[in-house]
Write a protein that binds this DNA or RNA. Sequence first.
DNA 1: TCGATTTTGGAGAACGTTCACAAAAATTAT
DNA 2: ATAATTTTTGTGAACGTTCTCCAAAATCGA
Lengths: 347, 347
Amino acid sequence: MPEKHFPSAPATLHDVARLAGVSYQTVSRVINHSPNVSAETLEKVNQAIAALNYRPNRVARSLVTGKSNAIHVLALDVYHLRMLPAMHEGAHEHGFQLRLTGFRSSENVLHDLDACLRDIAASGPDGLLIVLPWALTTEQDLIGLVRNIPFVVVGNRLGYGTNAVLIDQREGTRMAIEHLLSLGHRKFALIDGPSQYYDAQIRSETARKILAERQAELVAAAQGNFSMPSGYEAMQQLLESGTTFTALFCANDEMALGAMRALKDRGLHIPQDISVVGFDDLSFTAYCDPPLTTVRQDFHALGAHALQHLLSLLKMPNTAPHQRLLYPELIVRQSTSTPSVRPARGG
Amino acid sequence: MPEKHFPSAPATLHDVARLAGVSYQTVSRVINHSPNVSAETLEKVNQAIAALNYRPNRVARSLVTGKSNAIHVLALDVYHLRMLPAMHEGAHEHGFQLRLTGFRSSENVLHDLDACLRDIAASGPDGLLIVLPWALTTEQDLIGLVRNIPFVVVGNRLGYGTNAVLIDQREGTRMAIEHLLSLGHRKFALIDGPSQYYDAQIRSETARKILAERQAELVAAAQGNFSMPSGYEAMQQLLESGTTFTALFCANDEMALGAMRALKDRGLHIPQDISVVGFDDLSFTAYCDPPLTTVRQDFHALGAHALQHLLSLLKMPNTAPHQRLLYPELIVRQSTSTPSVRPARGG
DNA sequence: TCGATTTTGGAGAACGTTCACAAAAATTAT
DNA sequence: ATAATTTTTGTGAACGTTCTCCAAAATCGA
């Protein structure tokens, strides 16, 4: 059989040493780029490595060095897969492997989180990226649970004692609401996200605060779970409440799309009857009907910064904890206009 | 400072043994649930484990057993993050950790793939899920490159000698085209996906084949890269080609959404002027305007089956390679209707 | 040329676990 | 009671690497 032959066991340091006629230690020096190895030995060893197709065993190396060259991402559910590509990219560039744990909690969050983190710790990652976009955990809890692994919190600010990278939710919300105000809207409705989420909390809080400050009216509010169906339902509730408003701020794009569907199903027109603003700038927002005005969050940048932050933490472990704040951007499309361009047609 | 104190180094087998007054081997037996350990020793050891907060070191264990309790996912770019949640779920359930490598190739695919797989092999995963949804690699190449790690190919069929889990693309395409034919359409246009993708190839091939068999007319075709903007552009090309057609089959939902936008921008109506069908059933399809008729692919099931397949492979390594084929489902919404309900309004 | 210094190479231990044995203790059979 | 058996516990080696030290060779200053 003219098949390519693979040795049952991969080559080790000793195999290479034997073939090159040196000690295994010398081979170790070569693969670790020690300066103290003569040109000719280097050559010999490199040839042997190539001939045997040798690669150092990460596991053995990890055992003795205590480093794994791996970064572990702990993320809530599916949620922040958006950032994964950027994290992977950065990690890979610096020779780190990426490991992934999706966190799913039943009732006792802290207990589950502890179990989860203990399991992660047992595999010895060098650093940890924590993407838990809710507001349930406190800074002290988290520091206690993570113990000795350097970590960066992503998309959430627990306090000023933990390293974090996040997008300014207040600013994003402010831009959205100010945009609607500047168009002349005075009567607002809100579709909030699930209240345990950090982002949802801040967006809701901030929107309400600004509306109050500017003496605009918040005539109705409903809550969804960030999904399209929940946006649809929330909008139905708002419509059934019998209140009238001309501007709608949704805590994310999915719910905004659901809400727009509900509006259209009632025969209402966007933006003539109601202006709609979303949050995130998901790709469909530019192509839906009408294209959605929204607040762009650069998830790629978020992931990339999170990784950078972690890497610099690994390099200089004693840096004081600090936060990096990224800024969102308002993308104005056709779902917003001045109120009552034409009289609202009741459903 | 009343801070919780963490020992600088985590407890080892020997620490536990010392505290419990037994040998380290006995502790090992306890954590591996060996039947041969007396009730009282078990109790003592368990107490010591609890007291010291001991967890076995995965790395050390991995070194000696040759197993890592980790499954590595090798996926093209960001592409199939959709399946990740299901894969993680299954893996976690069976005590496996998930590791992730995104593959990005420059010119020499085989060479890059080799480097990538060698790196993965060095960290010793127990199994490999390969999500490379293109048609460039051959079965023999892949078997050669992966060497000794059990692997399952996901969303791609390279041949009958590799384990694979995939969704029947032919059947999905057939359902879509038959649906349009049964509505009475005879003049078709296609927006294909990038030709290096397995899915895109099969969808294009199959659509053309069925149209030919049924003696319907394929009047125009364009190609996109699976993105919304590319769908928009492709549609513009089709419109500018001056041909007339009543049915459009797009190789995925994103391009379908882009195409619909282009149609609406030309003043054309869906489905009155042109019926549109997509592929995938992404969440926005039910909420866009009009809601899109599409072919649902259950990515969760795909990921879950892939993991199951791999696990059974790990259990029984000598099972003959086989493929699991999942079936898609046609979701009929409002973007398709009988042709020319009213005369087409030219742009 | 000799001793002192620098380079290069190698031996032994260690990392934390499991595996293959062997020893000790407990149980059973005679 | 004693031998034969079974159950329980302990010892030594190994996994593949890096680390700490020490020996040999090469280089250097006088």
